[in-house]
Design a protein around this nucleic acid. Structure first.
Lengths: 213, 213
DNA sequence: TATATAAATAAACGACGTTCAAATAGGTCG
DNA sequence: CGACCTATTTGAACGTCGTTTATTTATATA
């Protein structure tokens, strides 16, 4: 009974992605099965393969969508501040808040392992870069004397740090003894990093403290 | 053909763990299958269930073993330094080096999702705590005026940060444009964090800069 | 030597990702 | 209006997975 044209290929893909997101949030990553996704939109498994190359392809597109939402979430948070230090703190809070609100989807972005040969699809790479560039912007404002390479390095190390606190908090591997909320920890990390950065800039006039030994 | 007593239950468990580690390093996490592990030690699947409750149990024990190795690796790095700042940098380097040398096993520790109800097994929690305590020790030495709660917070945020850089570097989600090696980034994060911490302590005589706003 | 028991296996179950021949429905052309 | 063509959709199959179970086997003991 192959009805036809009831939905275009694009509509079908969009429906499948919606279903995948719902499945992820309601039942967790291991329940994100091709059959479940297909069933949720009233099709059979085979039809999914008419639209996606395979499960990996589906996951990658879910991840792109999640990254889009994350970016919007962060943009909204950034709209309310202007000073660079406040911007970085706001980004950190927004990053953590989004991850906490959508833990399964957020983790899927970072934990999904692709086949050994293939690397990240181009659009995903671009979206990740966009984040770092936004961080770099505020860093540059706080550290005008730094070279572009230094700014990039700072953005990477600082945001990598925020990411780490977020992962560990989400997976319950950060709490020891009494547990400070993750928001406090990210704020502390950002605050101290920036203090260290601007102090180094002010006192030595230029370079950051030599980090190795 | 049930031969008997050829290996004790404990020997069998140890052999299975060895096989699992080898499988992980040689073929990746998705090939860590119960049948493959059993086959590698010359048994059939069912025998694995004589020794482990299920695949999750096996993975948890692999993770414990990996954490033990990681701790030894870090201890060796710490043996060569005494000053607290150098200790933290050495720990960061060792953490990253171990993760780079055993990416699959290392990621399995943090990416393995356990069933929604159950939480981390006690021994694993203790081993994670031990790390933070070691970090906290050096932090306390650098920041003698800080309360225990402050020290713990610092250890969590700083080490969370190191962890984040390590994850992103390992999964290729950190590199943007020219990519500074991850060792440089962790050293930079640690250096700046500590600079920010001790400067705050020196100038205000006590508390760190209020992190929020 | 016979027997009880621990150890190990083989076979099965349902669910999974993936593939593919077959069926079907809509558009097109006679 | 009817026959065909082709893009969709299905159903069924394949091999693999985690897990469970009845059954077999080898050893220790009596």
């Amino acid at each position: 009974m192959g009805r036809r044209g009831e939905h275009t290929k694009d509509e079908l893909a969009a429906m499948a992605l919606d279903a995948a997101v719902a499945l992820l949030e309601e039942e967790g990553p291991e329940r994100l099965t091709t059959r479940a996704v297909a069933g949720r939109i009233g099709y059979t498994v085979g039809s999914l393969y008419f639209v996606f190359r395979n499960r990996e392809d589906l996951i990658l597109q879910v991840n792109e969508r999640t990254l889009d939402e994350l970016r919007e979430h962060i943009a909204a948070a950034l709209a309310e501040v202007s000073e660079p230090r406040a911007s970085l703190l706001a980004m950190g809070r927004a990053y953590l808040a989004f991850a906490s609100a959508h833990p399964t989807r957020w983790r899927l972005i970072f934990e999904h392992t692709r086949a050994p040969g293939s690397d990240l699809p181009e659009p995903l790479v671009r979206k990740i870069e966009a984040f770092f560039l936004q961080v770099a912007e505020s860093i540059a404002a706080l550290n005008p004397r730094a070279s572009p390479a230094e700014v990039r390095r700072s953005a990477q190390s600082l945001w990598g740090g925020v990411h780490g606190i977020t992962v560990l908090a989400l997976t319950g591997k950060l709490a020891i003894g009494g547990d400070a909320p993750a928001e406090v920890l990210t704020a502390e990390l950002i605050g101290r990093y920036l203090d260290g950065m601007v102090d180094a800039d002010r006192s030595h006039g230029r370079a950051p403290t030599s980090p190795l030994r």
